[in-house]
Write a protein that binds this DNA or RNA. Sequence first.
DNA 1: ATGGTTGAGCGTCAA
Length: 269
Amino acid sequence: MPASLRIATWNINSLRLRLTLLRELAAALDPDVICLQETKVPDELFPAEAPAALGYPHAAWRGMKGYNGVAIFSRRPIVTLETAPDWCGKGDCRHLAVTLDAPGGPIELHDFYVPAGGDVPDRDANPKYGHKLDFIAETRAWFAARSGLARTVVVGDLNIAPLEFDVWNHKQLLGVVSHTPPETEGLLAWQRTGFVDAVRHFTPEPERLYTWWSYRNRDWRASDRGRRLDHVWVTDDLTGALRRQRVLKEARDWVQGSDHVPVCVELAL
DNA sequence: ATGGTTGAGCGTCAA
């Protein structure tokens, strides 16, 4: 009798500011694991008692001052993995990997916050764009070199909407950072190192699916200029265990909410 | 052509 495991991911855009919204996330999705990005809190200021108070006694975090930062809250025991490289040698707190004590055996879980890449899609004019492309090339190569990759889950704000129906206007966004061909091709090449897009597994194109709507719109729902930047991937061996996905669109209306909404995938293990 | 908004933390920078 397989047991369910729900893994949620959310770009919280400041953990300290939106700590109370995690209660709403937990109530809405009842996840076993919550992976966060853009926590924007240095480790020494992390509210260490918060995960357990929410019902997640096992937690890990990697943060810095002002920007970036990732964290994992879990109901099940986790062990932080230190085997991954410091991507692009920047030490910028964009990745946290753990071994998760899951039904049927451990799962390797990776929480990523891929660089946003700035505004100009040209690596010479804009080093942030080059950093983004280099980052996903490194992650791709690292996973490609892992022989026997299995029971592994990659989640996070990957800051790329890879498919035509992951954006509100494909043609218009081909020149906009997050949907340019070098980014989408790079992300899909990373995915092809052994992963299935667990969300599109249930909701294939041409259905449109977004997880982020800019703050810079008067009415995000009316204009609906969204992009699918947040992802859950599982290795091929877990495809048969996939049960459902949820994109918690209502979270975009939470009081003082993030510009990203949580995404959750349920597995039967 | 550019604006529009938000967060960290106090300058603007990053998104």
